[in-house]
Design a protein around this nucleic acid. Structure first.
Lengths: 134, 134
DNA sequence: TTTGCTGCAAATTCTTTGCACTGGG
DNA sequence: CCCAGTGCAAAGAATTTGCAGCAAA
């Protein structure tokens, strides 16, 4: 079974994929595909955007990274653990937070007969750098 | 002042906009621009997609509707009150829910020095129609 | 008459894909 | 040698925009 698995889904080493993984794993700002592309270009000048997208998709399928959607654009996150994001409406920064409170799950199951897998949360407001000084 | 306001932001009546507002206000399924376009076409055959997008944007700015982003596509919601959505991963349906619990706000303010305006939540799981029967 | 709104099509933006070639195993 | 992965460019999908004509007020 394992042999068949590798025969069908053989994944080869590639410098491009390594670089892309490295970029995502060394960035906390949840970069977009374009940001990753521009960064990768610095060391692999001929890399193409198509390659970036293909590898990001593959890394997501293999569970190494996670895609999050900020309004209409995909951003990539090395943190695949369940967590949520604070979004500052002034600077656009996404800040990771972990909310351990799962008290909502049974409530929703009870009220809506809905089985909760995960909660994706964007908490919008102003971060400490951009809070209005009154 | 009020006169100047109207001079600058004069908004005229338009059959197209009325129809679009009517469609959004009579649908609970959070339709996409394309769905609204197809629906509007039934009574205004010459309406264009550009008009639909322009009017949806205008209705959002005037606070009459709200845009929600479901992964990569915009959906439009007549319900502009703070509320959240359950998304069934099987059928893709979005179900409105209102969570009154604001206990998270002071916690985030304290822990992250982040002022919370609103919490946008997608709760992903399976709705009662699509729950696996074990 | 004035100018906001429309239809249409072209343009943009983000993402995916077809294809011939390259390179890892 | 085989075929996964690549660069490139073209195609797609969703959304925006320029423009000339239409139509509210």
């Amino acid at each position: 079974m394992i042999i068949i698995y590798f025969l069908i889904f053989a994944v080869r080493f590639s410098h491009q994929r390594e670089k892309i993984r490295e970029i995502v794993y060394n960035t906390n700002s949840h970069p977009t595909a374009d940001k990753i592309f521009l960064e990768a270009k610095k060391s692999i000048p001929k890399i193409s955007l198509g390659t970036v997208y293909r590898n990001l998709k593959q890394l997501e399928i293999s569970g190494e990274i996670k895609t999050i959607y900020d309004d209409n654009i995909a951003r990539y996150d090395w943190n695949t653990e369940p967590h949520n994001h604070l979004k500052c409406k002034n600077c656009g920064d996404l800040i990771d937070i972990v909310l351990k409170d799962k008290s909502i799950h049974p409530k929703i199951k009870k009220d809506f007969k809905f089985n909760v897998d995960k909660v994706e949360m964007f908490i919008i407001g102003t971060c400490k750098k951009h809070a209005k000084q009154t």
